[in-house]
Simulated assay, not measured.
Amino acid sequence: MAHSLIRNSIKSINPKFLSTLSVHRSVRRLGSVAAAEEEQSSSSFTFSSEGDNVYMKAPAARRKQSSSVTMPMSFMTGSIVGKRFYKEVKTREADDGNGWTVMLDYRTLKTPAKRPLKLPTLSLAKAIAAEWEFQQIDGIRPFTMPLMRLSCTALERVPVTRPKIIENLINKFNQDLVFCRAPDDNDLTTVVHDRQVEKMGPLLCWLESEFGFKPVVYSSFFGGKQEDGLVMAIEKLLKNTDDCELAAIDAIAASAHSLTIAIALVHGKLQIEEAIELIRLEEDLQVDRWGLVEGGHDVDVADLRVQISSPVVFLGLSRNI
């Protein structure tokens, strides 16, 4: 399943088209707490070599004999940073036999905290190695390495900020995209309302059957108030996730503006394209009515597809699905 998702995602994403994400519009800001923690701790990281290791670290005072390459911490900048400083990329089993690592030439890739990038499966290690192998000689493009970013988040940020991540997700649950309905009292919004009822209805029914509480829908821009029982059930589910699963849910929810869609994707209730259709429902109706803006709507679709598909693929690879 994971390999099929990767093939489909790669076929639908043109690397040259991805580079327009930073050229034609402002980069989408990630709303996840894990991502926010990364950007607060450092605006950039450094690849440095010490013996047989390569690690990422926060910027420090420049040394006279530095072999480091500095690049933005945000993996979504479309910038080309530094030059490719390695020739060969490969994977190998971790020294302790527990997990897999990525090698850049003879050096082991490490996380920002100088820990080996120890990955749970060979499939995920090979996928991340492919991201590094894709980098061109003229420079490294961080925005083409979403699996690398998610892996660092799951290995380092989630264990440290888990309570904050869950709190942030629960706080935004009442404003979930799938609970919102456009007013049905005028010609301009009735079409949107009817499509929301049609497309969101099955997901709400699943949510009720899965957790035992009927979701509340609303028309207020500021959201509504869900039953405490439903909120507590969702919070319990999040607390029982492993680090990779929580990192995936957090990343999807930030891009989808919906914890419900994130959970449904992770639990197999929704496919990637179905999720994208729900997220873009209102905007796609506007495009159908007024037309598509080239360099705007099409870039948004490509950006969203990367943001939604990457965590799903990452989670599948981390479980060898």
Rank of each mutant, 00 (worst) to 15 (best):
Val306Leu: 10
Val160Ser: 01
Glu37Tyr: 06
Lys126Cys: 04
His24Met: 14
Asp176Asn: 00
Lys87Ser: 12
Gln271Tyr: 09
Val89Leu: 09
Ile276Asn: 00
Lys16Asn: 10
Phe75Ser: 13
Ser48His: 01
Asp185Ala: 10
Gln226Asp: 02
Asp243Ala: 11
Lys126Met: 08
Arg305Lys: 07
Pro202Lys: 02
Ser26Ile: 08
Gly78Lys: 00
Ala125Glu: 11
Val69Asp: 01
Gly78Pro: 10
Lys225Tyr: 06
Leu122His: 14
Arg319Leu: 12
Thr91Ile: 14
Ser22Pro: 09
Leu281Val: 01
Leu169Ile: 04
Ala2Glu: 03
Ala248Cys: 07
Gly51Glu: 01
Pro72Glu: 03
Ser32Pro: 10
Met71Pro: 02
Ala60Asp: 08
Thr101Ala: 02
Asp228Ser: 06
Arg7Lys: 13
Glu133Met: 00
Asn168Gly: 09
Ala125Pro: 13
Ile261Pro: 05
Ile308Gln: 11
Lys118Tyr: 03
Thr108Gln: 13
Lys164Asn: 12
Gly99Leu: 07
Ala34Gln: 11
Leu204Asn: 08
Glu245Asp: 08
Glu273Arg: 12
Leu207Pro: 07
Phe134Ser: 10
Ser48Leu: 02
Ser310Asn: 07
Ala130Cys: 04
Ala251Pro: 01
Thr121Gln: 03
Val312Lys: 10
Arg305Trp: 13
Gly229Trp: 02
Ala264Asn: 07
Lys126Ser: 11
Pro120His: 06
Lys114Asn: 11
Val27Ala: 13
Met103Pro: 03
Thr144Ala: 09
Ile263Pro: 07
Val293Trp: 09
Asp176Phe: 06
Ser68Cys: 02
Asn174Cys: 05
Thr121Cys: 04
Asn174Met: 00
Ile308Pro: 07
